[in-house]
Structures are given as C-alpha cells and as structure tokens.
Nucleic acid binder design. Structure first.
Lengths: 239, 239
DNA sequence: GCACATCTGTACTGGCAGGTACGGAAGTCA
DNA sequence: TGACTTCCGTACCTGCCAGTACAGATGTGC
C-alpha cells in the first residue's frame, strides 16, 4: 500500500510552506487525525519540478498524439523531467494518463460540469456547446477533445485506456441526461421529451465537433453548426 | 517506376482465366494499346492468396485498431500471409493502409457516394445518415468509422496518414456541399440556405455518430439521433 | 558532523516495432 | 528437360518501445 505511483500531489499554496510535497493516498484519513504541522515537509531531497506543470505538459502531448502515439520520450522531453522521475512521481504510462485525464477534466474541460449548473436546459446545452466550441478552437490547445482522440481505436495493450475513455464519455452523457430529466419535472422541457435521446444528440454534436476541430474547423465554423443544431431543441432560445 | 508496391490488382472475374494477377500502375495506358490476350497470366509462381480477401482482412484490423494500433504481426496474422508477401504485394504499412482506405470507400462506405445521387437534398441526407447508422451498427463490422478512428491523433510517424484521413473527411464534406448548392439552384432548398454550414452540420452528425458507435451505441439509438437531427433540416420530410 | 530519506541522471534491459536477405518452391515458355 | 520469372517462408536486421538498476546529489533531523 501507498505505492509511490499512488501518491497525491499537493501544491504548495494549499498548506505547505515551500516546494511541493508528496502525500500518500491515505491522505484524507491522515488529514483527519493529524494537524497541519505534522504534514510539513518530509525528509529527503525535494522534488525539482512542479508536478502540476509537468501534468500540464503531459496533457499537451497526450492531447496532441493520443495515448498510443505519445511515447515516453515525447513525454519526458515535454515534461522536462527524466524517465525515473516520471515513474516515481506518476507511476507507469497508463497511470500518468489517468492523472492527465483528471487534470483535463478540472482544467480545459471544466466548462462541461459547470454547464450543468445553469438554470434552464436551454442554458445548459448552450453553455455546453459554445463552451466546447471555444475550448476546441482555443489558441494553445491542441485541436480536438482528449476524451475522443485519446484512444478511439487502438491496439490491445491500450484497451483498458480505450474503455476508460468510453466510460468517461458515457458518464458525461449520463450526467446531462439526469439534468434533462430534472428539466422535465421542472416544466422546463415538454413532458414528452426524451432525455436519453436528447442527451445523446448533444453528445453527438460535441463529439462531432471534436472530430471537425481535429480536421481544422475554426471557432466561427463550429458556432455556425451549433446554431443549426439548436434549432431542433425543444425549448425557446434564451433572449 | 512500376515498383512492386504500386501494383494494381485485378480480380479474376474481370478478365483473367484463373487466379489473380498483378498489373503495373501504367495499367490504364497498357490497356489502351494491348489486347486482353496480351494481359494473360505472366510466368512465375502464382500468388497463393486472394489480394481482395487479404485487403478485407487488413481492413478489419485497421478499422478495429487504427493505423498505429495495428502492428504488422496483427496484419499478417489476420491476412494469413507472411510478412514478405505483404510487402511484395502492398508495399509498406502506409501503402497498405491507403489501399485499405480505397477498399473501404468502395465497400462498407460506398453508401456515401451513392447517397449523393438521390433526387432531393432531403433524400440525400436521409440516405447518408441512415446508411451510415446502419454501417456503424452492422454485425461483423468493427464499431466506428475508419475515416475517423483510423488516425485521429497519433505520433509524428503517422502524421501523413492523419492528414490523408483529414482530406478524405473534408472531401466527403465538400462533395455534399456541392450537392446542396445544386439543391438550391433546383429550388429544392431555400435560396438563403447555407450549403457550407449544412454540409458541416451533417458531417458533424456522421462523425459524432461514429464516436458514439465506438462507445457502443446501438442502431436504434443512432436512428433516434438522426430523427432529432433532421428536425432542423430546411426542407420537408419525404412522403 | 552523521544517519537517514528521497529525488536525479546515466546507462541499461528485454521485447517488439517495421522492414529485408536469401534460398527454395512453383509456375511458364521454348 | 532446363532456363527463366515470380512468389513463399525462415530467419534475420536495426531502432525504438516501456520500464528499471544503481550510484550520486540534496534535503531533514539529531
């Protein structure tokens, strides 16, 4: 237990006086019973890189090249750390990819979860779609969506990663479906609306836009699509 | 010139008395000046496999695993030929992939071109979408679209393949755009319709369905999406 | 200062990737 | 029959892949 690759990184701003620190995954229980002071810096040589920045850079590589296309040499070069540091800090390639997926969900793709908080279903899907279009066409971001192009079709060695991405995509769709169900009970969508089909429709638009972005579609082109797609949405456009 | 990997295969049913035969790419010019008889079987040991069937099997592997995920060992095993036979018959991996793409366009994806022949724009997009949904959910086919998942994001060594797929996707979209332009002049679509946006919209639906299929969507689920998607189509439903 | 803990960089491993050399087999043609 | 052409199968090549051993560096606590 507490294998090094299961460590959770805590950035200095949280509670540590300097540098970054590694804490075991039992960190939560640890926090309950220990005071801040006892969590102060451990002995040993300190980490010479910022794990968050390293994850940022790893995200860029995986996003651009996909799971299989990103070699460890690509990754270590971009992350500016050596191979053993990567393994000590993040575990193997697959483990790093999982951490990168979380990093992506909390960063570039954070608009997805935020969109569900909008008051009406119309506002939810508009924020979801336009937010995605912006993310897909944002300067500095690789073109496309990591959930789609991380591992859509791949060799058998990457199969678990492929399945993980499928479940993340379906999970996002399920969250939207729940939100649309709520909209029906709230009278925000007509009672005969089909939340499952509507959620799937939005998912398809998002995933299709992702492929289009990978083909070079611009922001205004993506927004033009959304305008068409929302014409069939069963509720009025927000002023 | 006439490198072995540039050969074009002619299936026996075309004009040869038996077996399959390799003909140089200068085949067209050759046909103009030579008679059928002069194209009869050459000397040498005959091919021990059917190149068409081998391409079928290679298609299955690339379709399922993508360009990078399909190793030469996967391919030769599925094609039931040895490595040197593959290289002699199809060139290197990239060349084989190009031939597989053609094979795909003429086979499983042939409905795309056929759909453009429909008399009205509505019929065109309906056949395009429902045909694609059927293809994506057909038993025996890998789930998804080769043009999308062949190489959406990949390492630099596969970059030319990625670009080739982009141009094939954009080519399909351009063909649809032309067809929709024609529909406007024919009064089949309103004069203020935007063929570029509409074609891009349909492309997004198709590509989104492809990702959904890769996530396990069923035929009826895909068809349900199309019903929603076509509600915003600017012309009446057929019949 | 010294024991201890942790991280870093170099250099390495076994295995598989794509690709090929070459001798022998299986045909045609005269 | 034998020269010639083409294909097949074994066995191999180089290079990169993910992953690791190990010695030295850099910190803490006493």
């Amino acid at each position: 237990m507490c294998e090094p690759w299961n460590r959770v990184y805590v950035s200095p701003a949280n509670f540590l006086p300097y540098g970054t620190k590694q804490v075991c995954k039992c960190y939560n229980a640890f926090m309950k019973s220990k005071t801040r002071k006892e969590l102060s810096r451990p002995t040993g040589r300190p980490l010479s890189f910022d794990p968050d920045k390293a994850l940022d850079r790893a995200l860029d590589v995986f996003w651009r090249k996909g799971y299989e296309g990103a070699s460890l040499s690509d990754l270590t070069k971009a992350m500016r750390i050596n191979r053993p540091s990567l393994y000590a800090a993040f575990g193997d390639k697959e483990n790093l990819f999982h951490k990168v997926l979380d990093h992506y969900a909390e960063g570039p793709a954070s608009h997805s979860r935020a969109a569900l908080q909008e008051p009406t279903s119309r506002a939810v899907v508009e924020r979801l779609l336009y937010g995605t279009a912006d993310m897909l066409s944002s300067d500095g971001n690789p073109r496309g969506c990591l959930w789609v192009q991380g591992a859509l079709a791949c060799g058998s060695s990457a199969d678990s990663v492929r399945k993980e991405l499928i479940s993340r995509r379906l999970g996002g769709e399920a969250a939207l479906r729940q939100r649309l169900k709520r909209a029906i009970t709230e009278g925000d969508l007509p009672p005969d609306a089909n939340p499952a089909s509507l959620a799937r429709y939005i998912a398809i638009i998002i995933q299709g836009m992702s492929v289009q972005a990978a083909s070079g579609a611009t922001r205004s082109q993506l927004r033009g699509i959304i305008d068409i797609a929302l014409e069939s949405w069963p509720s009025r456009r927000n002023t």
